[in-house]
Amino acid sequence: MRNGQYGRTLRRLTTYGFVTLGALASIFPLYYMVVGSLQLRADSAFSGLIPKAGNLGLQNYRDVNKAISLLPSLGNSAIFTLGTVVLTIVVGLPAGYALARLRFPGKPAVAGGLILVLVLPFQVMMIPLYILAVRDYGLADNYLGMILPFAVNPAAVLIFRQFFISLPDELFDAAHIDGAGEVRTLLLVAAPLTKPAILTASVITFIGPWNEFLWPFLITKKHSMQPLAVSLGEYVSTNAATAANPYGVILAGACVLAVPVIALFLVAQRYFTSAALGSGVKE
């Protein structure tokens, strides 16, 4: 009896010890990012882990703002990201609904295309898409050009589809008996219920373009059009070496880039459920 109790306590201790270790390893680099961004002189010694009063300040934030003007960059990131989210909902929601509840010619083609784009490595089409977007579609240094490859997030379409499949058939039968057509059914019956699915799809879609480097980096040459991830990335690759405290300046920019998404995640984390992520990749 006694032994069993000790065993259980020991097991619980090991369990919590293990996840605590994992959590610390997850969070530590982000903690270090904040600490490093506040150091006036880069202090990579072990003791530098704890902020020191004499070596603390916001100079790095002023410096990074001087180098890449944060506010316009953040504005570009916001337009790029929100544009993607809006297009994903406007185009993806009806498509998800049709894939879930309707029969129509060409349905297998759409469903197949959706799965294909989910597993296709983007870099395979990097050169042709770059040429098409810049030359044929004329979208260099243009928000639409940045949004284009992200415009309809396939994971979000799958979330919508999964959501409409999960709604009870009776709901739709009742609307049909009342004589509502498919469009009326979608607008009056299904759409009001979709709020949680829209929120889940939005937060999951948000992460992609906000954090993306390669594509907006390719398609924007004007600094005034670059989202923050791109202007910070270019700063790292070209000018950082000339700064007095390059690490601190980069980390200050990193904090400004990371904080909005982390904040959104913490506020909206109940929409980041395993089930939602699962439905985005399950099939």
Binding site: M33, N211, L232, Y247, I250, G253, A254, F265
Partner: peptide, 19 residues
């Protein structure tokens, strides 16, 4: 705690690993 690194931008993460 486990999920926060996943939502953090690569460019930000690269900054810390560089340091």
């Amino acid at each position: 705690a486990f999920f926060v690194p996943y939502v953090t931008a690569s460019i930000a993460v690269i900054g810390v690993w560089y340091f």
